[in-house]
Structures are given as structure tokens and as C-alpha cells.
Nucleic acid binder design. Structure first.
Length: 687
DNA sequence: AAAAAAT
């Protein structure tokens, strides 16, 4: 399998200089190991989660229920850090929980030569620990001497935090499937890809955290993106979450920050004290900004960032709507070097003077196409272009997008400088990782059919040959994600399943942010192995152990379908996707058929004849979506045609991308953009 | 017409 690729255009020399370094000599107080905040953000999830609704068994009867409204204490608990965690003593050891096999610190590994790296807090170090005098007890601070202010050196280990960050881990990765993913990079002077994390120097901290995360080898997107980002190039990557994308940008960006140190940002923060601004408290100047379309995705990226920032001086923060802004501001004020945000809340924070982007050297736009879909473009431009962020060419910008329609091409043209384009094949979805089933189910039969599916312990025989890992009954390690089209429908189906005795919960945009996060946690943890969801959960969320995705309602858009089923079969695992199809779904017939064929899935004969009968209809699918990047015909030789300098319109306006065999609908260069919909066909809403 | 997202 290979790609035809794409443009390369020449630009004048890259004036890029990252990590604006300057001398600084100040004392640095590192609170990153303080139980105060670390206990706050996610400890509530991992250890200290209390919910009186979850006391019962979830085996089948009397399941926990995800109430609406109610308990107001939850978020407070979560953020309060009020758990009785053991406190770190002066030499960074922990007297608390019994050692778990998970705990190894960095240095526990014998495969790393740099033994001096770990647990060597003592000799030669000019810093010192200060015991905090707080009533709550013993905040330990590492006070650094200015000359020791080297961000590339790890800070003290913290067993409890380490356990919290790294204990939940992916298992059973199907590497064989994984390596099939085709990747293609284009652009001027593209650095060669790596085969091992050791092929590029990411420094002690990153390598230690890679070990702790039990990452053995880079995923395909990481193999390419890491050296590109490390060599300070801008990047436009067409890849979906689940390909290892988050680490693909977090690892090299953080590595670079550790190497370069805080630069001007540190002084700026110092100068932003109460005396310097009407807003009083310190304004934070993150060195790196990651924008994400949904709150849950932002949280997920933040959680990853915490892992790779372990034992570093970088403090990640996350801001998003629906949550208490005061709490987020307080968290920011404790220091913020890497900020993960949804656009709206970030603009809010900027207008409140809490965040300055003046020293933001690294900008990541995750799921960029999704952000545009959701109308974020003005806010993104406000953040990137109309504020104090360094211009392109100065900052380093990385964009990730599942598709590459015209709107994204324009954004790439505006935000990126001399960039490298990376096309990553799908991990799941159209690959054979996911067994896709389409069944004809009338609206009135959907519920009972769903129950049958949920009760099924044996998978249908015709599926078995494709599935080596049978989907089990929903349970702790076997999660089922049920997609519906409307928020109302989600509530109704959740209620139904609840009354039928299933441990289920739901997530959609009308639920409070607290409930959404809780539902996700209940699902992830297996307490509620069935999650009823709207489109909010379709993209980006990385939930391991999702064995079965059920499209209770099929979406009207094939892109949405691909994203949804991509929630299973993550990182090389196998999964099953079952879709209920009836008259209402005729609009997706053709695209669905194409997807099934492409992924070498069994096609029901009725679907085939439906598609044939409907074939007179003009269908157009913008973006990569249904067709993937793969060449379907023709050679690969013509990709250089019509790709002149940027003056001819750069990536945006060119026609002729498809010359080499993408087919005419590969990029939406025909002026219709990605929004052209199927004319004349019946859509989901019956219009 | 749905859903997502700042309040």
C-alpha cells in the first residue's frame, strides 16, 4: 500500500528559531511534586473516587446509575486534593502505599545506561528541599539555585505520583496490525524517520517517561513526526487519534522545552506580578499551547502531558468550558508551561489577562478539521493571529487533522511555514482491525435488537473468522459504546437500558461537564461498561478496551461513521462495530458500501442492491474520509504537477492534487469544500 | 435539523 504524495514548494530560508533563550538567574520553585495539585487533578479518578451509586455490583442487576444533577461535591473533591495521601519526605521517598510492581522510577530500568540520572538528588546538587509550613502538612518544595536551573535534568521521583500516572496502561497491542499503517512524508528537506525512540535524542526525562509508559517502540506516526518536530519544522499531519498522535507531538515538544529551558517566558511571568497589571495575579506565559475541539479530548491530552512532564519542571495545565473557571485560574497561577485548551475558554482566559501567548513557541492544533466544523475558526484565528502569539516562522506550529479539505488547507497556509506534510493511514476504521457488521433493523425493533446484542456471549459465526478476539459481554474489560444521533435519544436509551438492568451511563452535550467527565470515567473504569453517546464521543477519545461499537442510529455522514467505529480497535487491537440500518439511512448507503469494500468487510446483499439502485444519485464525499489516502488507480508520478511556489495559491487553491490517482474527490478543491452534501437523498432527519 | 463550544 502506498500513497501518492503531494506538494512540495519552496520557500525562502527558514528564519525559524525556537526556544528564545536568554540568560536568567532567578530562584525557581518547583511545585510539580507537591501533593497539593497532583492529588487534585486526577487522583480523584484514580484512587479517591467515591460514589455511593457505585456500591452495587454491576454484573447485571442493580447497576450503578449515573444520576443527573445531584451531588455537588464531586468536582470539589476532585480538585481539592483532600485525599489522605502519604506525603513525600525530604529525600523524595514515599512512606505510603505498598510498592507496586508498576513503580520503577526511571532508574529502575537496567537498559538505560545513565544511572546517575535517578535518585541522585544528593551529591553535588546545589538545590535543597524546603519543608512547607502549611497546616495541611508538609508541602515539599524543591528550591533550585539559579546556576542549576537546567530544565533538562529530572527532578526528584515521587512514587505515589508515578504510580498514579503510569499504572493504567495499555496491554495487548497488536503490533503486527500496527506496522501496516502506511505513512508518507513530503516537504523540503524532510528529516528521515526513526525506527526506535533511541534514534533521536530526546533527553533523560523523556526517555525515562517513555520507559515508565512502557512504550517499546514508536508508532508509525511517531516515527515520522518526532524527528520532524525535533528538527523544528512545522508539520501538517493527517492522522487520527489512536495512531499515537498525542505522544507524537508531546514527546518532541516537551523534549525541546526541557532542552531549551523556559527562556523569556520565565522572566515574563516574574514581571507579571500584581504590581504590573490591573488584573493582579500573575499572568502565565505558556511555552506550548495545544488546542483541542472537545473538553474531553483536552483533558485526555492533558493527562498524557502529565505523564511526559513527570520529573520535569514543566507544569501542564488544562482549561475548558463547563468547569469552574476560578479553579482553573488558580491552577494556572501555580505555573503553566504547557497549556491544553478548548478555544472558547482560552479566549476567555486571555481576555481576563490570565494567559499571555507572547512566548508560546509551540502551537499544536489537534483535530483541526473538527474545530472548523464546530465553528471555532474565528476563535482560533483570534488566538493565533490577533493576539500576542509569535508569528509563524518564529513559533513552531503543528496541525493535526483527519481530513484535508480546503478550509484546512487555507488554515495550514496561514499558520504554517515551510511545512512538512504527513499522511498517516487509518489505524482502525477502514483497516481490518475492526470487523464491521451492518444489520437491517427497523426503528421499532432497535431496542430489542440492542438487548440481544448486549446479551450475546457468542459472536455470530459469520463474524468469527474475522475476529480472533471475541467481544465479550460488557464487563470491566469489555466495553460497549452505543451511538445515537440526538441528545434526547441518548437520554431515552440510557433510561431504557437502565430499567432493563444494565450498568450504563451516557454522555452528550446537554449534560453538565461534571456528569460528562464522570460518565466517561465510569465507562473507562468498567463500572459502567455500556456508554450511550452522541457525536461528542465520536472523535479523538481514546478509551482502551472498547470491544464493541454499536451504531444504534447511523450518522448521516460517513466521516462521522469512520470516527465512531474508530473508538474500537484502538492502537492495533481488534474490535467489532455493529450498525443498525433501515430506510432512514439511505443517504449513507453508497459511502458505507465503499468503506466496507475498502476494509474487506462482508457486504450484506441488501446493502449492495440498495447502493446499486441508488447509484444514479450523485454522491460526493469531501475530504479524505471515505476514500482514505490510498491510491486507487493510476501511477504515482504526477504528484509534482501544478505545484509551484506558494504564490500560486499554495496548498489551498490548487486543483490537480488528484492527478496521480486520488480520484477527483480526494481533496475538496472543486469549490464545494467538504460540506457538499448528497443531493436529493433522504437524510437522517427525514428532510 | 444535530452536535459541539465561553457564560
Amino acid at each position: 500500500m502506498f500513497f501518492v504524495l503531494l506538494f512540495s514548494y519552496s520557500t525562502a530560508g527558514n528564519a525559524y528559531s525556537a526556544g528564545k533563550q536568554c540568560g536568567y538567574s532567578v530562584a525557581l520553585i518547583n511545585l510539580s511534586n507537591s501533593p497539593g495539585w497532583d492529588g487534585g487533578r486526577s487522583n480523584g479518578f484514580v484512587n479517591g473516587y467515591h460514589d455511593n451509586r457505585t456500591n452495587g455490583s454491576f454484573g447485571g442487576r442493580g447497576p450503578p446509575r449515573n444520576d443527573r444533577g445531584g451531588r455537588s461535591a464531586y468536582r470539589g473533591n476532585r480538585g481539592g486534593g483532600s485525599f489522605n495521601q502519604p506525603l513525600q519526605n525530604a529525600d523524595g521517598n514515599w512512606g505510603g502505599p505498598p510498592r507496586d510492581t508498576t513503580y520503577s522510577s526511571f532508574g529502575g530500568r537496567s537498559d538505560r545506561a545513565k544511572s546517575s540520572f535517578f535518585n541522585d538528588r544528593g551529591a553535588g546538587s546545589r538545590g535543597r528541599y524546603e519543608r512547607g509550613g502549611f497546616a495541611s502538612g508538609g508541602n515539599t518544595r524543591w528550591v533550585e539555585d539559579s546556576r542549576e536551573d537546567d530544565w533538562s535534568k529530572p527532578t526528584a521521583p515521587n512514587e505515589r505520583l508515578e504510580h498514579e500516572l503510569f499504572s493504567a496502561s495499555n496491554t495487548g497491542i497488536n503490533f503486527e496490525k500496527y506496522d501496516d499503517i502506511p505513512v508518507e512524508a513530503t516537504g523540503t528537506n524532510c528529516p528521515p524517520h526513526i525506527e526506535s525512540f533511541h534514534d533521536v535524542d530526546m533527553g533523560e526525562i523523556i526517555m525515562g517517561n517513555i520507559n515508565l509508559s512502557r512504550y517499546t517502540r514508536p508508532t508509525p506516526v511517531q516515527k515520522h513526526a518526532i524527528p520532524i518536530i525535533k528538527s523544528k519544522r512545522d508539520l501538517m499531519a493527517c492522522a487520527q487519534t489512536g495512531s499515537g498522535k498525542t505522544a507524537a507531538f508531546l514527546l518532541p515538544v516537551l523534549s525541546q522545552i526541557y532542552t531549551d529551558g523556559p527562556g523569556d517566558a520565565l522572566q515574563a511571568i516574574k514581571n507579571s506580578g500584581p504590581e504590573n497589571g490591573r488584573y493582579g495575579r500573575r499572568k502565565q506565559y505558556p511555552i506550548s499551547l495545544v488546542l483541542a475541539p472537545t473538553r474531553e479530548l483536552a483533558l485526555q491530552i492533558y493527562d498524557e502531558a502529565r505523564k511526559f512532564a513527570y520529573r520535569s519542571r514543566v507544569r501542564p495545565c488544562v482549561v475548558y468550558g463547563g468547569a469552574d473557571i476560578g479553579q482553573q485560574i488558580r491552577d494556572l497561577e501555580r505555573g503553566c508551561h504547557l497549556l491544553v485548551a478548548t478555544p472558547g475558554r482560552l479566549v476567555d482566559m486571555m481576555e481576563r489577562g490570565k494567559i499571555g501567548l507572547d512566548y508560546c513557541n509551540y502551537l499544536v492544533l489537534d483535530e483541526a478539521d473538527r474545530m472548523l466544523d464546530m465553528g471555532f475558526e474565528p476563535q482560533i484565528r483570534r488566538i493565533v493571529e490577533q493576539d500576542t502569539m509569535p508569528p509563524k516562522g518564529i513559533r513552531q506550529t503543528m496541525m493535526f487533522s483527519a481530513t484535508f479539505p480546503k478550509e484546512i488547507q487555507i488554515l495550514a497556509r496561514d499558520f504554517l511555514e515551510d511545512y512538512i506534510f504527513l499522511a498517516v493511514g487509518r489505524v482502525g476504521s477502514t483497516s481490518e482491525n475492526i470487523t464491521q457488521k451492518v444489520v437491517w433493523v427497523e426503528e421499532t425493533d432497535k431496542r430489542s435488537f440492542l438487548l440481544d446484542l448486549l446479551n450475546a456471549t457468542v459472536i455470530p459465526s459469520e463474524v468469527q473468522e474475522n475476529v480472533t478476539e471475541a467481544p465479550e459481554k460488557p464487563g470491566k474489560d469489555s466495553l460497549t459504546l452505543v451511538f445515537v444521533e440526538t441528545k434526547k435519544g441518548a437520554d431515552a436509551l440510557e433510561d431504557f437500558l437502565y430499567h432493563e438492568g444494565y450498568a450504563c451511563t451516557s454522555i452528550h452535550g446537554d449534560r453538565s461537564q461534571r456528569d460528562r467527565e464522570e460518565a466517561l470515567h465510569q465507562f473507562r473504569s468498567g463500572r459502567c461498561p455500556i456508554l450511550v453517546a452522541t457525536a461528542v464521543a465520536a472523535r479523538g477519545l481514546d478509551i482502551s478496551n472498547v470491544k464493541h461499537v454499536i451504531n444504534f442510529d447511523l450518522p448521516s455522514d460517513i466521516e462521522e461513521y469512520v470516527h465512531r467505529i474508530g473508538r474500537t480497535g484502538r492502537v492495533g487491537n481488534l474490535g467489532l462495530a455493529t450498525s443498525f440500518f433501515n430506510d432512514k439511512n439511505s443517504n449513507i448507503t453508497k459511502d458505507l458500501l465503499d468503506i466496507l469494500v475498502e476494509a474487506k468487510q462482508e457486504v450484506p446483499s441488501w446493502l449492495e442492491s440498495l447502493a446499486t439502485n441508488a447509484s444514479h444519485k450523485y454522491t460526493f464525499s469531501g475530504g479524505f474520509g471515505a476514500r482514505d489516502y490510498r491510491q486507487t488507480s493510476g501511477g504515482s508520478g504526477s504528484f509534482s504537477s501544478n505545484r509551484g511556489s506558494r504564490n500560486t495559491g499554495g496548498h489551498g487553491g490548487n486543483r490537480g492534487f488528484g492527478g496521480g490517482g486520488f480520484g477527483g474527490n480526494f481533496y475538496s478543491n472543486d469549490g464545494y469544500g467538504g460540506n457538499y452534501s448528497h443531493s436529493g437523498s433522504v437524510d437522517w432527519w427525514g428532510n
